[in-house]
Design a protein around this nucleic acid. Sequence first.
DNA 1: ATTATGCATAAATAATTATTGATCTATCAA
DNA 2: TTGATAGATCAATAATTATTTATGCATAAT
Lengths: 121, 121
Amino acid sequence: MRDLANVFKALSDETRLRILKLLEHGELCVCDIVAAFNIVQPKVSFHLRVLKTAGLLKDRKEGKWMHYKIDDSDLFKRLLVLSVIEKIPENNVQEDRRRLEEFMRNKAQGQSTSACKEKKK
Amino acid sequence: MRDLANVFKALSDETRLRILKLLEHGELCVCDIVAAFNIVQPKVSFHLRVLKTAGLLKDRKEGKWMHYKIDDSDLFKRLLVLSVIEKIPENNVQEDRRRLEEFMRNKAQGQSTSACKEKKK
DNA sequence: ATTATGCATAAATAATTATTGATCTATCAA
DNA sequence: TTGATAGATCAATAATTATTTATGCATAAT
């Protein structure tokens, strides 16, 4: 019962809903999400941890990157996350996707150097 | 999106989950829930309001009683509430049901006088 | 009318969560 | 090594929620 309440608590925050929506099409690393939302990294890490603790996300370490994606091992939670994704209108996350794609583009071209370094103002 | 987060927030508290579970078999008035949980009335009213605001409960006034029941007008919310009810094991709410039934019995016999008056210690 | 009951709400306080800024660790590149 | 980057975590603070006590309002019984 506590676990159930916890899952809902994880879903009760708009930033976390946006994260789930952003992960709709696959995994992302923390710096991607930071770039997409234009908010500080500890904040993103905090919300990712909440989602992970609730069993809604999985992580995977690769070099110095942590990748997060939707955890589909539990059917109920998976259904919840899917319904969240379905219920958030695309235009609510347009800006997030735009910033993400721009960031991804920069990443792709400047491959020689580090990918996620501080974006200049 | 805010509305969606709100629905989940309403579901993120154990007392509120217990209320939904208790309402599984039909409507109850506030004093029933107070008796079932053995907690103070304003606290129950507070949680009922949260659930109602989120669109998970409906209320109905009859004389001086307020009756609450599950709002089944929205399919998604209805599904959520059903899954909550299904996921909470019966033994988590045994005591609640026992106190409720005892209270209902007293109500039924002492019909002449007021039903929900302060229970003696 | 007067009194008692059912319930909501307000004010005050307590308890949780979220956010920020400052480290800290691990990994990789030079 | 040394330096830089990705990300976690901690400490301090801000912001929300929950709980309690007190009160107010409506209804109904006397």
